[in-house]
C-alpha cells in the first residue's frame, strides 16, 4: 500500500513563501491568483500492510510524531493500492 501525505500550514499561520509565490504570479499576469499557500507532499510505501484502517492509523501516528508539527501544520492522508 502507498500513502501520500499532504502537510499544509494552518489557517492563520503566516506563510511568507506563499506570499512571495503570489507576488510572482501577479507579476506574470496571473492577477486572479489569491491566498497562495505552500505545503509539502510526502509519499511512502507501507510494507506488508493490507488493512486500510490500520494503515491510516499508523500513518496518522507518523504525522503526529514527525511528519507534521501540530503547532503550525495540518495534514491529510491518502492511501492507494
Amino acid at each position: 500500500m502507498k500513502a501520500r501525505i499532504h502537510v499544509t500550514l494552518k489557517n492563520g499561520v503566516l506563510d511568507p513563501q506563499g506570499k512571495a509565490i503570489e507576488t510572482a504570479l501577479h507579476g506574470l499576469g496571473f492577477g486572479e491568483a489569491g491566498n497562495v499557500r505552500q505545503g509539502k507532499v510526502i509519499e511512502l510505501d507501507l510494507k506488508g500492510v493490507a488493512d486500510k484502517a490500520a494503515a491510516e492509523a499508523r500513518v496518522k501516528e507518523m504525522c503526529a510524531k514527525l511528519l507534521a508539527n501540530p503547532v503550525i501544520e495540518d495534514y491529510s492522508v491518502e492511501l492507494a493500492g
Binding site: 499561520v13 503566516l14 511568507p16 513563501q17 512571495a20 508539527n69 503547532v71 503550525i72
Partner: peptide
C-alpha cells in the same frame, strides 16, 4: 527544543524570506 515540546510554540520562515 520547540520540536521536542520542551518549549512552547514554533519557529517559522523569516517574514522577509
Amino acid at each position: 527544543l520547540v520540536e521536542t515540546g520542551l518549549l512552547p510554540g514554533a519557529l517559522l520562515r523569516n517574514a522577509s524570506l
